[in-house]
C-alpha cells in the first residue's frame, strides 16, 4: 500500500490535540524504550526524535485498543494482532490518564458512533431528526444502518451512563 509521505508529514505539522515527550517502546522483541515527542493529530499518533522535525512514524488509531500498563504507562495495540503492543511511559499517572482518554476518543469510528447515538437520542426526545435542518440527514456517514451490529450494541451502554 503506497502513500505520499509528504502528505503525512504535512499532517504531522498540524496543531496537535495532545503533544508530549514520552518514553516509547515499539512492539519488536528486544526493542528499548526511547524518549520521543509524541503528537496526536486527528486520528493519527505521530512520533518524532526529540531533535528532529521529521516524524519517525505514525499510527492510525482506528480499531485499536488503549490499555493501562504498569502505573504511569499505557499501551496501544491493534485489533488484528493484539499481542503486538506499543508501550508508552508518562511522567505521572495523571498524564497517563489524560493520554489514554484522548487516544480512545481519537478515532473516526468512535466519532461516528457518538454521532449516531446523539442523533437517535435527540430523535427520541423531540421526534425530529436533528440533521434535517442542515440538509445532511442523507449522508452515508451518518446512517445507523451502516454500522456493524456488534458496534451498535457495544456502543450504547457506557454512553448512557456518561450522559444521564
Amino acid at each position: 500500500m503506497r502513500y505520499n509521505e509528504k502528505e503525512l508529514r504535512a499532517l504531522s505539522q498540524q496543531p496537535a490535540e495532545m503533544a508530549a515527550e514520552l518514553s516509547m517502546r515499539g512492539p519488536k522483541k528486544g526493542s528499548v524504550a526511547k524518549r520521543r515527542l509524541v503528537k496526536l493529530v486527528v486520528n493519527f499518533l505521530f512520533y518524532f526524535r526529540t531533535d528532529e522535525a521529521e516524524p519517525l512514524g505514525a499510527l492510525l488509531l482506528e480499531r485499536c485498543r488503549v490499555a493501562q500498563e504498569e502505573p504511569g504507562g499505557f499501551s496501544i495495540s491493534f485489533i488484528e494482532d493484539p499481542e503486538r503492543k506499543y508501550y508508552f511511559e508518562c511522567c505521572t499517572q495523571e498524564q497517563c490518564q489524560e493520554w489514554m482518554e484522548a487516544l480512545r476518543r481519537a478515532s473516526y469510528e468512535y466519532m461516528r458512533r457518538s454521532l449516531i447515538f446523539y442523533r437517535n437520542e435527540i430523535q427520541k426526545m423531540t421526534g425530529k431528526d436533528p440533521l434535517e435542518q442542515y440538509g445532511i440527514s442523507e449522508e452515508a456517514r451518518f446512517q445507523l444502518s451502516n454500522l456493524p451490529r456488534d458496534g451498535r450494541a457495544a456502543f450504547v451502554g457506557p454512553w448512557l451512563d456518561e450522559l444521564d
Binding site: 508529514r9 512514524g57 492510525l60 482506528e62 480499531r63 491493534f78 494482532d81 452515508a140 456493524p148 458496534g151
Partner: peptide, 17 residues
C-alpha cells in the same frame, strides 16, 4: 516514515461502513 500499514489495511477491509 513508518506507518502501521497492516492495521491500516485491516481497517480498509473491515466491516466498518
Amino acid at each position: 516514515m513508518k506507518l502501521n500499514k497492516r492495521s491500516v489495511a485491516h481497517y480498509a477491509l473491515s466491516d466498518s461502513p
